[in-house]
């Protein structure tokens, strides 16, 4: 019980600390590919171009993730008993 309390307090403090740090930091939270890779590439005269299959348009990327999530959820639901059953068979060599 005490251990759980300590863990909960630690997690809460960590979350608040992270939130404060994020709030206080000035930055656009872009990936380092933009701020580093593409920045130096552009300086050298090489710009990144659009990928051949560009899913980074509007909500298309969300749709791709939705599909992956739906498949994952289906597999999890289908195998729920197998996954969360505590019953275990004997070890075989």
């Amino acid at each position: 019980m005490r251990k759980t309390f300590v863990v909960c307090v630690a997690v809460a403090l960590l979350a608040v600390g992270a939130w404060l740090a994020i709030e206080m930091t000035e930055g656009d939270w872009g990936g380092v590919d933009e701020s580093v890779v593409e920045h130096y590439a552009e300086e050298a005269g090489r710009s990144a171009r659009d990928p051949y299959i560009n899913t980074d348009q509007g909500d298309l990327l969300l749709f791709v993730f939705l599909l992956a999530g739906a498949c994952g959820g289906f597999v999890a639901g289908y195998s729920f008993k197998t996954l969360f059953s505590r019953k275990r068979g004997p070890s075989a060599t």
Binding site: G31, E34, G72
Partner: peptide
């Protein structure tokens, strides 16, 4: 099985970030 489902479910909550990957055309 647990690991596989955890991995699949993680996909739901994650969004891609562009970092060490060298982009097309660079």
């Amino acid at each position: 099985r647990l690991l596989s489902v955890a991995s699949l479910l993680l996909i739901v909550s994650s969004t891609p970030v562009w970092a060490m990957h060298i982009s097309e055309g660079i």
